[in-house]
Simulated assay, not measured.
Amino acid sequence: MINLEFSVRPDQGDPSGFDLGDMTITGDLGAADSRGHYPDQGMMIYLTVPLLLYGLGRILRGEERRLRFIGIDTSFRVDFHRNKKGVSLSANRNKITNIEVAELASAVLLAAEALADSSLPTLPEKDVAKSDYLNTLNDFKALTASISK
C-alpha cells in the first residue's frame, strides 16, 4: 500500500515553475513528509516531480536497481530499491513500504496527475517547468500503461 501527495505551498506571489511545494509518501510500514522540518525541506515542486518520474522510470524499466531521490533545492530524500518482489521505499533509513512495480507506477502517476490538474493551469503558458512537467508526465503515463498490461 502506498499513498503519495504533491502540493504547492500557498502565498508565494505570482505562480511560477520555481514555486515551493511538498511531498508526502505514506506506506504500510511508515511515512515521509517534507513538511515540518528545520531546516525547511520544501522543494521546487514543478521541477522535482518530473525528476522523480524520470528516475522512477529507470527503476520501473529495470535500467537501474536503486534510486536515491533528492528533490530540487531540498535535502528531502527517498530511497527506492528494486528487488525480486518489486520496489522498497525508505526515508532516513526507515522503511515506508515494499510494493509491486505496477502499483508504485500507478500511485506515482495518480499523484503527479492530481498536481497537474490542480496547479499546473495556474502557471504561465510559456513556463518551461510547465511544458517539461507535461512532457515527462505523458512519458510516465505511457510507461505505466505498458507495465500494467
Rank of each mutant, 00 (worst) to 15 (best):
S88A: 10
D73R: 08
D14G: 09
L56W: 00
S16E: 07
N98W: 00
G30W: 04
L134E: 07
I70E: 07
L4N: 05
S118H: 13
R9Y: 02
E103A: 15
R77L: 07
F6I: 03
T122A: 13
A31L: 12
Y54V: 13
T74I: 13
G21F: 10
F140D: 00
A32I: 06
I59M: 01
P39Q: 03
I59Y: 04
K84L: 01
R35D: 11
M1T: 15
V108S: 02
S75E: 13
E103P: 09
F140L: 07
E5W: 08
R68L: 09
S7C: 11
A105T: 08
G42A: 07
I99G: 04
N83A: 10
T24S: 12
I70P: 02
D11H: 09
H81C: 04
D127I: 05
D127H: 01
L109R: 05
D40Q: 04
R66Y: 01
I2K: 10
I147S: 08
S106G: 13
N138K: 04
H81N: 13
V108I: 14
I96Y: 05
R66E: 10
K95A: 15
S16P: 09
P124I: 13
E5Q: 13
R35F: 05
E113C: 05
L134W: 00
L120W: 06
E113K: 14
E103N: 15
A111K: 01
L53I: 09
T144G: 13
F6D: 01
G62N: 06
M44C: 08
N92L: 14
G30I: 10
Q12S: 11
K141T: 15
V101F: 11
S118W: 06
G62Y: 05
H37T: 15
S119Y: 10
S118V: 00
D11V: 14
F140E: 00
N94S: 15
G36C: 04
L52V: 06
F76H: 11
T26Q: 10
A105C: 12
F140M: 11
L51Q: 13
T48N: 02
I96N: 10
P39G: 11
L104Q: 09
L47D: 09
D73V: 08
Q12V: 03
G42Y: 03
A105V: 12
M44Q: 10
D11Y: 11
D14A: 15
G30V: 14
E125V: 15
E103Y: 01
A31F: 03
K141M: 05
V128T: 08
